[in-house]
Write a protein that binds this DNA or RNA. Structure first.
Length: 510
RNA sequence: GCGAUAGUAGCUCAGUUGGCAGAGCGGCGGCUUCCCAAGCCGCAGGUCGCGGGUUCGAACCCCGUCUAUCGCUCCA
């Protein structure tokens, strides 16, 4: 474990030292769980997004991409369930240091009383045998009625507090009910605090009379509310998908683990609309398809695994995660969810617009079912980056720091290096640089000995080093050195373009 | 939010009776060098996280605060 922690620290410091990721607002002591992408990090991140976008939008005729606004009508978050579902009142027990949801504590308490009623009912059933009338019993038995009255009273106070957002009232209810912490057994509770998942801001230049607007907590809703626009304007036929890459914001209770869980993050989502009844078939299809996408990067399969959800969200009828072996253990990288027709139905209900599709083959209208694939850009970055970073001991006993990024994702595809800084080699190298720079992100470097320059490129993940020597001047060939193997081969300058293109392509997985 | 630990150069860290703020690596300029962190010369870079207090004097002691890491709940 100590080893993994060290490895993780190395990831964080390497990311900073070479310009991949900086803590946000660092000169002002930083801002919690917010990070900036530096000059190389931005390249890597853009390459991840582009790799995803191509594999989704460019390689699938029936998937198109959109870019919806971060600001959306507030009712969208009512419809999606985010306003209600992610407004948790939390309370801590000061003795056990355990945190609970205040509403759950109260609901559990109610459940306990309900159990007592059930016990009374069971006892009575045994006593009366076949003649037992449950309905009559629960409406007449004194003890049951007493319990039921308690439940009704609690429920009344509870729902009033929840509706009025009365946090002090919730706490008082917990105290009045003498609810104790299951761990410490004490009633030493903190105040109830509200944790709202969504960031709120105002739309309108003056605060009074302006509406509260939320920064979107997921990009998916921007796709659902544009379902009809895209389907009609793009003449899309089911099954089809809508993809989107964009920022999302969540006010996490605990934001941790570097860029793994940030308050501002970026998602790559695709919502695939299918015929009702065919959703599980497509769920299986995308589950397999998405894993292939990861494997095509060349990271060994043992670093990935599926994690099927036992407990499903209210809108889903199947869900799985693709987990990755991060330095701190297997964690979710991507989610694939069968979201049923929940979102489109809810938006139909809340907007009053009929979000349906006329299937000409079936000759009928229906609300499509949805398969969602949702992957975190920043998590993919962290997965790829942390897996790529290694300290290698070479045969001669020296070590090198190597960032073996998949070539398709590497910030620089090649470095152009004159072997020495004289004899016209820099000029020749510059000419090669200029001839390739329109097709590839390149770095030119003539400072220091060649070995040192190779190691510098290793540390930032440049897959190829193109070295110009005296022979280059005679026969127009260069040495190409491959990062991971350190093998060199001689390549003609006019072949460089196709050489690089061929080797930078991701692997095809069937 | 609670607890534990930490914060000194870009990175890793040293720095005790409290007395001039340092090293290694890295970076930059130059010399040398025809292939894997070679060598030589020179240079830059720090309000010791921040704010108070104690003291003749604080990186060091005290208080507060911020940030990060690890544990407890939610999630991409």
């Amino acid at each position: 474990m100590a080893n993994n922690e060290d490895a993780f620290k190395k990831v964080v410091s390497h990311a900073k030292e070479y310009g991949f990721i900086f803590p946000s607002s660092e000169i002002y002591d930083g801002l919690g769980a917010v990070y900036d992408y530096g000059q190389l990090g931005t390249e890597l991140k853009n390459n991840i997004k582009s790799y995803w976008w191509k594999s989704m939008v460019q390689y699938h005729e029936n998937i198109v991409g959109i870019d919806s606004a971060i600001f959306m009508h507030p009712k969208i978050w009512k419809a999606s369930g985010h306003v209600d579902a992610f407004n948790d009142p939390l309370i801590d027990n000061k003795d056990s240091k355990k945190r609970y949801r205040a509403d759950v504590l109260i609901e559990d308490h109610i459940a306990k009383i309900e159990e007592k009623i059930e016990k009374e009912v069971e006892k009575a059933r045994k006593r009366f045998g076949d003649a037992f009338d449950r309905d009559q019993f629960v409406h007449t038995n004194a003890r049951v009625l007493e319990h039921q009255a308690k439940i009704d009273d609690i429920t009344r106070r509870y729902s009033q507090c929840m509706n009025d957002n009365d946090l002090a009232g919730l706490r008082q209810l917990i105290l009045d009910l003498e609810i104790v912490c299951p761990i410490s057994g004490t009633r030493n509770w903190t105040e109830v605090r509200q944790f709202n998942l969504m960031f709120a801001t105002q739309m309108g230049s003056v605060s009074e009379g302006s509406d509260t607007i939320y920064l979107r907590p997921e990009t998916a809703q921007g796709i659902f509310v544009n379902f009809l626009n895209v389907q009609k304007s793009g003449r899309m036929k089911i099954p089809f998908g809508i993809a989107q890459i964009g920022k999302a914001f969540r006010n996490e209770i605990v934001a941790r683990q570097f860029i793994f869980r940030m308050r501002e993050f970026e998602q790559m989502e695709m919502q695939f609309f299918v015929r009702p009844g065919e959703e599980l078939k497509w769920f299986e299809y995308w589950k397999a398809e998405r894993l292939k996408w990861h494997l095509a990067l060349g990271i060994p399969a043992e670093n990935y695994r599926y994690h099927d959800h036992e407990k499903l969200a209210h809108y889903a009828n199947a869900a799985t995660d693709i987990e990755f072996r991060f330095p701190f253990g297997f964690k979710e990288l991507e989610g694939i969810h069968s979201r049923t027709d929940f979102d489109l139905s809810r938006h139909s209900e809340f907007s009053g617009k009929k979000l349906q599709y006329f299937d000409s083959e079936l000759g009928e209208n229906y609300t499509p079912y949805v398969i969602e694939t949702s992957i975190g850009v920043d998590r993919t970055f962290l997965a790829v980056f942390s897996h790529a970073l290694k300290d290698e001991t070479l045969e001669d006993g020296t070590t090198r720091t190597l960032l073996s990024l998949p070539p398709v994702l590497a910030p620089y595809k090649a470095a152009i290096l004159p072997l020495v800084k004289k004899d016209g080699l820099p000029e020749k190298a510059r000419a090669i640089f200029d001839s390739l720079k329109h097709d590839f992100m390149l770095q030119y470097d003539e400072k220091d000995a060649i070995g040192r320059r190779y190691r510098r490129q290793d540390a930032i993940g440049t897959p190829f080093c193109i070295t110009v020597d005296n022979d280059t001047l005679d026969n127009d060939t260069v040495t190409v050195r491959e990062r991971d193997t350190m093998q060199q081969e001689r390549v003609a300058i006019d072949q460089l373009d196709s050489y690089l293109h061929r080797r930078i392509k991701p692997i095809t997985i069937d």
